[in-house]
Design a protein around this nucleic acid. Sequence first.
DNA 1: GCTAATCCCTCTAGCCACTATAGGTTCAAG
DNA 2: CTTGAACCTATAGTGGCTAGAGGGATTAGC
Lengths: 137, 137
Amino acid sequence: MYSIGDLSRLTGVKVPTIRYYEQVGLISAAQRSEGNQRRYEKNDLERLAFIRHARDLGFDVPAIRDLIALSHHPDAPCAGADRIAEDHLAAVREKIAKLRKLERELERIVSHCSGHSVEDCYVIRALSEHGLCEAEH
Amino acid sequence: MYSIGDLSRLTGVKVPTIRYYEQVGLISAAQRSEGNQRRYEKNDLERLAFIRHARDLGFDVPAIRDLIALSHHPDAPCAGADRIAEDHLAAVREKIAKLRKLERELERIVSHCSGHSVEDCYVIRALSEHGLCEAEH
DNA sequence: GCTAATCCCTCTAGCCACTATAGGTTCAAG
DNA sequence: CTTGAACCTATAGTGGCTAGAGGGATTAGC
């Protein structure tokens, strides 16, 4: 039997976050001690570690809910889980692409600034005059 | 004199967003018509375009406030604006680095999945057993 | 001058995944 | 038995908007 604090230390998930996961239904309501404190068992620990892991990989709460549901049906085809992971991967790649565009534009702006007064600062000018931009955004 | 809708069309910033910018102090409270509707002039238009542009580049509201303040002192040294842009560029690069790690890990998980039943699905297994991970996360 | 359509106003609540705070209760060690 | 840490619930806040309700203003056409 673990207290919520034990679970927190063992998984690296903060105590309020564990309660939050219970609230949004990622973990089921824990058993309680006589004094109404949460008491967990090993399978709760595993489930929380699973969630933590999925969150670290950037899956959102609905996706994790789906992954948990799938993991409870070991005989079901794997395509569902695969699909979720692939969709997420695609989203991550899109974010990277957008950030890279931003990076290039910012590099250009910063590198053009010759470092005198604000009057001819390229950073400020680039923001004021859209014509100085390389790409659409 | 522009109405808030005119300003919205001209800058591509949605009407509620313009009001939000006023609320958080990015633009000063506009003049009002007799019937209490906002009326803008050309310099308001320029300022909003500046803000839009900075948002597109991912600057957050406090950074934009600082950039606007700087842009009002044309004789001040440019270092402040430069600094803001460089800090932001660094933050963007960090985000990219994190997302790339994620991308690699997800690629590895997805590609290992041979596509049978959930029981031996690599996606689910990778989430359950941290030992299957390549990197720390 | 009237009417209808469109625009505009304020205020409040919702999004996501937490995090923080307040005010109170329980537990475990000494 | 006392103390202090850990626990409980409930509510509000984070950022940068967005959506909706319930009204008032403006404007184009007749």
